[in-house]
Amino acid sequence: MSDDLFDVAIIGCGPAGLQAAIHACGKKAKVVVFGKSERSSLYKAHVANFCCFEEVVPGRVLLESGKFQAEKLGAVFVPQDVVDTKNENEQFTLVSENNETFLAKTLVLALGVSRKKLKVKGEKEFLGRGVSYCVDCDAGFYRDAQVVIVGNESAAVTGALTLLGFASKVFLVCKELSVSDALHQKLEKSGVTVMEGTWVKEILGDAGVDKVALTNGQDLSASGIFIELGAKGAMELAANLGVAFDAETFSFIETNKKQETNIPGLYAAGDITGQPWQIAKAVGEGCVAGLEAAQRAKRLQT
């Protein structure tokens, strides 16, 4: 599969990603969709305001049937997070958490928004003085230091592996790991010290971070703590492609009415483009993004 060139790659399998897949498949495009349904904010929601569904529908049911529908039309689903993206020669390269590489002519970002803050004492106080939200940005400041990374998913695990190349000791604090088997095995074989079944209670220090207190009563001596909750988000994946964010908050990707970003071949749809965070908006934007991406891929062919 890795050597195949897809017409449309979609990151995210919530309503925006699914609708993009359905419409791109309708244009006979070769489509691959990344992500985990249970991570969509729709998964645990109960939907009561989506047109044509008069009764309350569990979000999980909608996601499952949307996936089934897209699969029937030919979309390939890769139930993994994307951990790296590149854009070279009008082609997108995506690396999954199993370290598999995928190539696509166009890319739709439908990865939603997620909570990045830990909300513990010391987090705000030590921002930039030991607290970091970006391993890729800040790992180099922790050469030969002891560091903690916290999170249950691919961002934390890939981040921990990256930190091994810099820090003298890396503690991964997690409640319960939720990553692919291949990534889990890589972690087990690595030198990362995994502290599972606990969480960060407080970040302590003086001028900078000195230690991290865990809910199991243990204290970890560390000069840095990386907070990497969930999967890599738009800021990590898309900013490196040069995507423009809204200048007011840097939280949303700017698109035009065709769901195009400032990068040719790169589209965005759903919550990641801004509020309202509603299925109706997500599927509308997903539809447009899927059609536009498929059409562009076809144009590139001729």
Binding site: C134, D136, C137, G140, M235, L237, A239, N240, A247
Partner: peptide, 14 residues
């Protein structure tokens, strides 16, 4: 800043 830092790129235009 650094070239590999996404958030750095995001604020550069501002």
């Amino acid at each position: 800043w650094a070239p590999w830092c996404g958030p750095c790129k995001a604020i550069a235009p501002v």
